[in-house]
Simulated assay, not measured.
Amino acid sequence: MTMQSDLLYSETEDELRSAVRSLLSDRCEAAQVLARAESGQPHDLDLWKTLAGDMGLAGLLVPEPLGGQGASAREAAVVLEELGRFVAPVPYLTSAVIATETLLGCGTPEADELVGALASGGSIGVLALPLSTAPTASYGLVQEADGRLTGRVGAVADAAVADVLLVPTSSGLHAVDTAADGVRVTAQIPFDLTRPLAEVTLESAPGRLLTADAAAAVRRGLGAGAGLLASEQLGVADWCLTETVAYLKTRTQFNRPVGSFQSLKHRLAELWLTTVHARAAARNAADALATGSEEAELAGALAQAYCSPVAVRAAEEALQLHGGIGMTWEHPVHLYLKRAKADAIALGTAGAHHETVATLVDLQAP
């Protein structure tokens, strides 16, 4: 009989959350994030250095023999919840999760050396695919000839601060240094200002072959990214719910707190319920990844199918229920709406994940 996993947070996970939240409360306030977004340089690399290097969070998913912390996806999920709660402009999802898991899927000395550099926080790695690429999607944007790579890939998240690009081709997965000749990274205008996108252009750029089986490694990286993105979406939704409830307790109308109105109580209660369900789905996906469950792909697709619309709805409700102040640039709620909307198409839409769930459980539409 299969033992049911305990999805409650462990004492270690609670301590990790407390440490991350304390740091972000001090270093990642909404006003600071807004100021960075306006400056055109949204990435907070000082904060990333603290998170990745000093706290060792970039190596949570990396085994200790390779220079990591030897933790699991459950701990990484807790970090992503907090990063979502603060819409932190750091490349954790792209480097510490997607790129790291892709490298771990290679199983070669070349990939192991590179994953150690990412785990230490000394290097930032990015998978050179559009952020919208789902784990089951096909790709063929870059061609390889005699160790030289040529092609163009748009909407690559966090490529502007990457030190190394992981480039999949028909011949395998290659590592390309962004400082190498023939590599050009051009910033694009993103919807979510806290997760910048860029176009990567390779013109006969030198690459190092990491593995000949790019498909398996990339699918592992994108699958882990999709499963753990649900935790970031949970953090976004939870912040929106918490802040909205607090605001409606203080805002008055007709000498009564707005939150006492029956219609708003119903909206908040429904939002709370969907957020609780989203937490269960996100925790289940993280636990399935952590335990190496055979149902990890199903759990990740299910979490994405559910958590994506929940985060969007929570942000939309927060915007509306904050009234006029919520529509201003100075109030941070628009950052959460943009993150939720961008996350809704990242690593596959909810519809695409619904199709994956249907395929995995053999419940295809007629």
Rank of each mutant, 00 (worst) to 15 (best):
L60R: 09
G107R: 08
D54K: 15
T359R: 15
L248C: 14
S170T: 04
S18D: 13
L129Q: 05
K249G: 15
P65F: 06
E297L: 10
L234I: 04
F261C: 00
V115I: 07
R17W: 01
C28K: 14
G324L: 12
S5D: 05
L114I: 02
A311H: 09
T108M: 02
W239I: 01
E110K: 00
A214I: 00
R195I: 13
C106M: 04
L193I: 14
Q304Y: 00
A175V: 13
A145T: 15
L131H: 13
H43W: 06
A159K: 13
R219Y: 02
L241M: 02
A117E: 14
H354K: 02
K338G: 00
A198C: 13
H43F: 10
K338A: 05
G324H: 10
L149A: 04
L166T: 03
A303Y: 05
D287M: 06
L289K: 12
L16V: 11
G147H: 09
L60A: 03
V79I: 12
L197S: 08
T136Y: 04
A299Q: 05
G225A: 08
G56Y: 13
E101A: 13
R184L: 11
D287W: 06
V312N: 04
K341L: 09
V33G: 11
D6W: 01
A58D: 10
P42H: 04
V33W: 08
T136A: 02
W329T: 15
R17M: 07
L173A: 03
V20Q: 14
A318L: 11
A278F: 08
V276D: 09
L60K: 07
S123V: 13
G227V: 01
T50S: 12
S72Y: 12
L222F: 03
V164N: 10
V142W: 01
V90W: 15
V90F: 15
A290V: 04
G300D: 02
L57C: 11
L302T: 06
